[in-house]
């Protein structure tokens, strides 16, 4: 089987993705080693999080990523309308993620829990909000992809911009896939 020498999409986005992932890796390692010195406090605080909402969020992002894959596949067959529809579906799943996260944040704040409550919540709010902003950024990029698809800017021969956007979206998904067990499950 012939293999490509470079991944799909613009190469610049991959440099950006690597940089973003390294920042998240530092955050994850810092969380884990800080937890090692405050195991009881981290475990007790973790119990106050809503794992059901976290599950819903994880399923939303995974589904959204899959829809983005379908969008690229549709464009590969020159089916711009289908591609657009899949992108809108991916965006809607992204919106579900944002709404659920907002509900979670609102619940904590209404119970007087914030970043200053303890070290665990400091990490919880910073890590998840940093990721939240990446979801927002990913949705802006996917929206631009959808707009350009609608405008006929992509074809089966040229859809690099679309792959660039969806690869960023998959990166956002990968980060959450590590974040979910680390913050909500592992104890």
């Amino acid at each position: 089987m012939l293999r490509q020498k470079t991944p799909g999409g613009d190469l610049a986005i991959w440099i950006f993705i690597i940089a973003e992932l390294l920042v998240f890796a530092i955050f994850f390692a810092t969380y884990a080693f800080t937890r090692a010195n405050h195991v009881e406090m981290f475990n007790n605080s973790q119990l106050t999080l809503d794992r059901n909402l976290a599950l819903l969020n994880t399923l939303s992002l995974i589904t959204s990523s899959y829809f983005a894959v379908r969008a690229v596949a549709a464009m590969r067959e020159d089916k711009a309308q289908q591609c657009f529809n899949w992108l809108i579906a991916a965006l809607l799943m992204g919106l579900v993620f944002l709404i659920v996260k907002f509900v979670e944040y609102n619940h904590h704040y209404s119970h007087g829990i914030n970043m200053r409550t303890n070290l665990f919540y400091m990490f919880y709010f910073s890590l998840t909000f940093f990721h939240f902003m990446h979801v927002v950024m990913g949705m802006v990029i996917l929206s631009a992809n959808a707009f350009k698809t609608r405008a006929g800017n992509y074809t089966a021969q040229n859809y690099t911009g679309l792959e660039t956007g969806t690869n960023y979206w998959h990166m956002v998904d990968i980060v959450w896939i590590i974040l979910f067990p680390l913050i909500y499950v592992m104890r």
Binding site: R3, F28, V69
Partner: peptide, 29 residues
């Protein structure tokens, strides 16, 4: 999803390489 399965050389392993980094640190902690 990102299509790295079909890429040769170092790029093929870019996500795996990243996964190992937090994987090792979190496991150690």
């Amino acid at each position: 999803y990102m299509g790295l399965k079909l890429v040769s050389g170092a790029w093929r392993w870019v996500i795996v390489a990243w996964l190992i980094i937090p994987g090792v640190f979190i496991s150690a902690a």
